[in-house]
Design a protein around this nucleic acid. Structure first.
Lengths: 224, 224
DNA sequence: TCAAGAACTGAACAACTATTCAGGGGGACT
DNA sequence: AGTCCCCCTGAATAGTTGTTCAGTTCTTGA
């Protein structure tokens, strides 16, 4: 064997892989999943089309990893926000608000990750990502139930329903179209958070208080 | 002019058109939208592939009409159920329950109509259908608000969120998988209806009562 | 029965992109 | 320097389906 991978080469390979993923992410953020085509992504990443296949076995794998990456970021943000909250109900409110703010800050990308038609099969990846995020929400609901703040319920189903409500109302085709305006955006986040909290059984008055608390820190994320 | 369309011919043409649409619907119910391909649909409808194009300008038009047809049926069912209810809150509960029962009774078809990736552009049709159904729900929420049963709110956003919650939790990829069992199915319908009613501000205790009332008549639909 | 024209057939076509692969180029070790 | 082999290139390939159209069959009214 006369050839060994130098540290430098290993770094370059990793950088290329990241570049390709980043290119895919940018393409998706700009033009949705439909824009994530091998040739254009390769151009963005400054490699040839064939090179993409040295890093990802197929387009399905590329997109699956993109979905996983974005979802990982979102999950981390949710955990961070919820863990910083003073109690279980606040944590739930913070989690919901974080989801809302996140999808709104990159609507096109979120739509692509969540639901946009793709010509290859990425259901497994989407399913796994959603399961993780829904699981996180479910455990936050569960914590609030155990603390006696919420009535007992099917937390998994509730978490799924909450995510569906958030996604549909904020990035779905019927979402309001003037969310560029920061004030309206905050209104929307507040409204859906309120709906979500009431859905799992938080009293109206208390829910309104939690919403205000949760939206204040999350607001800063919108700009980011 | 020696040829004129006889009444008989007109009827046959209409029948064929219906047959093609029905074939498309059956295909979608069996294998999702991916199964709605021109050649297989033509075989089902007992015509040649080219004939489909004498009735629908393109595959997009065929699927768009399929979506419109299914949604029309659902909207009618919602109106029927809601109009039969004794009051605005009951009407809202009935509407929500009807949506739930409908999508559950044909999950695969519902998934295809609502969200499954299609290789042609049917966003316009999907958008229009959803807008109509969301509008109906919104007006039911509005009626309950005007009757003083619910707090004032953005009814359009609330309706969209409710539909998102229902769809995601009942036909989405995270939906429970044992809904073939009628008892579990009823549980799921009750649970999501309860969530939906609480979300728009119905008190927990009152919501539970409404759910029971709404699910009883709707149950019969599950068998249909 | 026959002319005219509509309706239907189904094989061929077209377009789009993911994927492949033969060949060029450049580090890595002796 | 020399040799090896990995990485990269990008034009060619391949597979999938919606769509077309020249030819055939059927229907109508005289």
């Amino acid at each position: 064997m006369v050839y060994r991978r130098t540290h430098q080469v290993v770094k370059r390979l990793a950088a290329r892989r990241s570049a390709i993923l980043a290119a895919a992410r940018d393409a998706a953020a700009e033009g949705g999943m439909a824009a994530v085509q091998i040739a254009p992504v390769a151009v963005r990443a400054n490699v040839a089309a064939g090179t993409v296949y040295r890093y990802f076995p197929s387009k399905a794998d590329l997109i699956s990893e993109l979905i996983a990456e974005v979802s990982r970021d979102e999950l981390a943000a949710i955990r961070r926000a919820a863990d910083a909250a003073p109690g279980p109900s606040s944590a739930l409110a913070a989690a919901v608000t974080t989801v809302a703010v996140h999808v709104l800050s990159q609507r096109r990308l979120a739509w692509g990750i969540l639901a946009e038609p793709v010509d290859v099969d990425v259901t497994a990846s989407r399913l796994a990502s959603r399961r993780e995020i829904a699981g996180e929400i479910a455990s936050r609901i569960d914590a609030a139930v155990r603390a006696g703040h919420l009535p007992a319920q099917d937390t998994a189903l509730a978490a799924t329903a909450l995510l569906g409500a958030l996604h549909e109302s904020l990035v779905g085709p019927l979402a309001p179209d003037n969310l560029e305006d920061p004030a309206r955006l905050r209104d929307a986040v507040q409204t859906v958070t309120l709906l979500a909290l009431r859905a799992v059984g938080v009293m109206d008055a208390r829910a309104r208080g939690l919403v205000v608390q949760a939206v204040l820190p999350a607001k800063t994320l919108v700009g980011a």
